[in-house]
């Protein structure tokens, strides 16, 4: 199966985001590199607004992801509540 990934800068803003992604994607693998965290997952990866908000204790707009995003791979399906990366094969 094809791997999708998303990579963020390592900092205090991304820590709760990464924690939320890891919890919502039990099949995901976390790779820590200097100053960055890359999360790989077979086929599909979901980022849920509610899980991030729970950790942050405030409202979160998924477009805030852009600020610390380094790279990603996969087709994107996005609405207000979730951001999904997926390969259709």
């Amino acid at each position: 199966m094809s791997t999708v990934f998303i990579a963020f800068q390592t900092n205090e803003e991304t820590r709760p985001i990464i924690e939320a992604i890891v919890e919502d994607n039990p099949h995901a693998r976390v790779n820590e590199a200097p100053a960055m965290v890359k999360i790989d997952a077979d086929g599909r990866l979901i980022v849920k607004r509610s899980s991030i908000e729970e950790r942050l204790g405030r409202e979160f707009d998924l477009q805030e992801l852009h600020i610390n995003l380094i790279s990603l791979s996969g087709n994107i399906e996005e609405d207000e509540d979730q951001f999904v990366l997926v390969w259709k094969n």
């Binding site: 800068q9 100053a35 960055m36 852009h66 600020i67 610390n68 995003l69 380094i70 790279s71 990603l72 791979s73």
Partner: peptide, 11 residues
């Protein structure tokens, strides 16, 4: 990394 944060959109 600041440039790269735009890169995801470019990709």
């Amino acid at each position: 990394f600041s440039a790269q944060s735009d890169e995801a959109r470019h990709m």
